[in-house]
């Protein structure tokens, strides 16, 4: 199985443990990630905040390069990149006039047969939990996690088409398959503050503080995320010392992948004490 893969700008920088663990876990699952040729930045929040046309054309160039690979799925790990690509896909599919403008600027012909999928969606719904289950060597017994989706994966549901926007369950199902215990809580789709972290750190500390205290109240020992910016905000802006994992890292741990020590080293809050206390070190 081969899929087109858009790593995004942070895959080799601020969320490198997400990128590294994704590559390792997919190697174990026997799914080849084919990096999109000469990919560019999706434009992030800054671009749609100031220039709508540019916010459609930058993702459109990524889509055009992915179409060149001839593969039918474009897989995106970062929730922010996923959201921008899906928004562009939505316009390309539903607005003929705007599609023509974007196609002309970027210089390509859109083909709707390419499916743009979030990494989490591919793992849970395409590869499937049965295949994940087969690879589990060390079930994550005793680990209580709060699955945190944030905004971009589930909203707007008309655009992302991923799970329930108020109470998604994909990550919980994955965690149960890995042997961990997801807690029930009501802050899983609340916003972490996104890039306000860079201009109003104190506001983001309040937003993150609320999310984390609710996770702790629900009995969680750690948070699981699928977004680089969420992970960074949750880890950087807290005083509780709660580890914040990417879901791929916990897959790697359950698959007993050796490289995991390299991922833990990248965390601001080391997950080692928690994992050792549960005999999962």
């Amino acid at each position: 199985m081969r899929v087109s893969y858009f790593p995004g700008c942070t895959d080799r920088s601020s969320s490198m443990e997400y990128g590294l663990s994704t590559e390792e876990v997919f190697r174990v699952l026997g799914v080849e990630l084919v990096e999109v040729e000469d990919w560019n930045c999706c434009g992030a929040a800054a671009t749609h905040s100031l220039n709508r046309l540019l916010s459609l054309c930058l993702p459109a160039r990524i889509i055009s390069k992915a179409l060149g690979s001839g593969l039918s799925w474009l897989v995106v790990p970062c929730a922010g990149c996923f959201s921008n690509l899906k928004k562009t896909e939505y316009v390309l599919r539903n607005d003929e006039k705007e599609r023509r403008v974007v196609e002309e600027i970027v210089g390509f012909r859109y083909d709707p047969s390419l499916e743009i999928l979030a990494l989490l969606d591919v793992v849970v719904n395409r590869i499937g939990l049965d295949r994940i289950d087969e690879r589990v060597k060390r079930p994550l017994k005793g680990l209580k996690v709060a699955c945190y989706y944030g905004c971009a994966l589930v909203r707007h549901p008309k655009v992302t088409g991923f799970d329930d926007p108020e109470n998604p369950q994909a990550m919980e199902r994955l965690m149960r398959t890995l042997g961990a215990q997801p807690v029930e809580w009501s802050y899983k789709v609340d916003c972490c503050g996104a890039d306000l972290a860079m201009t109003y750190g104190s506001i983001v500390s309040q937003m993150v503080g609320r999310i984390l205290s609710m996770a702790v109240e629900a009995g969680a020992q750690a948070i699981v995320t699928s977004c680089g910016l969420c992970q960074m905000n949750l880890e950087m802006r807290q005083e509780l010392g709660l580890p914040v994992f990417y879901f791929t890292e916990l897959m790697g741990l359950a698959f007993d992948v050796e490289q995991r020590e390299r991922w833990w080293a990248k965390h601001l809050i080391s997950p080692r004490p928690l994992l050792e206390s549960l005999g999962l070190g």
């Binding site: 220039n51 306000l196 109003y200």
Partner: peptide, 13 residues
């Protein structure tokens, strides 16, 4: 500040 951060991001791209 919020505006300038977005500008700086776009210029980087």
């Amino acid at each position: 500040r919020i505006h300038l951060l977005h500008e700086a991001f776009i210029q980087s791209v």
